[in-house]
Design a protein around this nucleic acid. Structure first.
Lengths: 165, 165
DNA sequence: CAATCCGTAACTAAACTCGTTGCAGTTACG
DNA sequence: CGTAACTGCAACGAGTTTAGTTACGGATTG
């Protein structure tokens, strides 16, 4: 399929959840219910976000995760870098091509340049979107759908919202 | 790893080979030697390029593949679309998130928008590069490396070049 | 008819994704 | 202090993708 894994989507979901549901304990179980997956999957992704310094996690009773930075200071590029390993977006040849062919001996360097540019263009779009941006859009849609009237436009003021999933 | 498969790189290699080595029969075996892989792998990719109308293929003695368009009229985005299936670059949640949660019920639509923009930015870069561009850069490097003095700057004039891989 | 070449199916090994279970470690609280 | 509620992590399995390989049928040339 050759696609970027769903970890990015889930990680953004997790962070948006934490930004807009600060009142409740952000436990892996609760978040997993919203994401519709297993708590361990959430903990794995949370571990990557913790390694990247985006969240802090507390074990024990009443524990859970907290944002370590403002939602406006976390870009989707940060998230992408945290949960997706450091490989290039485009793969080159599985085996190095024939060095003694004028094409084979030089095409990888050329492809590298093009692919690097393409990846950078993609990353720049991600860098222009923050968790706050995403959360605002999500809440705007929730309000438009009319099913969640109590939601606030400000993440910090959304502390009292009740989880319903 | 979550990367775009090497089929794109190999397909560009195949097309550049055909553009710059028009004198020789572009058989899967010869191309496979330059790419350093199995002829069947080349034929599979060639099949995708044929379905996309970029090449024509002839079986039988003296057969092989030929470019169906000018190298300057084939962009890397065309190649990408031909050999990579139609899925989106970014995956969303493996399972649909909780619809009755203000986050879970709306985040996919928001993510879809951002991810679509990021993918389009990547595609635009690929659309700006053609097989001719790649071939010229490759041949420029080959000449700079000093190992292939007979290479020509013009793909149409390179018909006499001898394959050495 | 024989040689050459493509098309395709089938199989394999390796890697990755996602989910799941199990268990050790940490913290709060009665 | 002991229990309950958490996280962290290792291990495993099913499913999918990738890339390579073998095999064989069909087309074409001479």
């Amino acid at each position: 399929m050759s696609t970027i894994s769903s970890r990015v989507a889930v990680a953004v979901h997790v962070l948006a959840y934490m930004a807009w549901k600060r009142g409740e304990a952000a436990t892996s179980e609760r978040i997993a219910a919203s994401v519709n997956t297993n708590p361990v999957v959430v903990r794995r992704i949370m571990g990557a976000l913790r390694n990247a310094g985006m969240v802090t996690v507390q074990p024990g009773v009443g524990g859970g995760a907290q944002l370590a930075r403002e939602p406006g200071e976390i870009t989707l590029l940060d998230v992408y870098g945290a949960v997706e390993d450091g490989d290039d977006l485009f793969s080159l040849h599985p085996q190095p091509p024939a060095r003694d062919c004028s094409i084979g001996g030089n095409i990888q360097a050329v492809l590298q340049g093009v692919f690097c540019q393409a990846e950078r263009a993609m990353r720049e779009v991600l860098a222009g979107v923050t968790i706050e941006t995403v959360g605002r859009e999500v809440m705007g849609r929730a309000r438009a759908a009319g099913c969640c009237g109590a939601d606030e436009a400000d993440p910090a003021a959304a502390a009292h919202e009740v989880y319903s999933g």
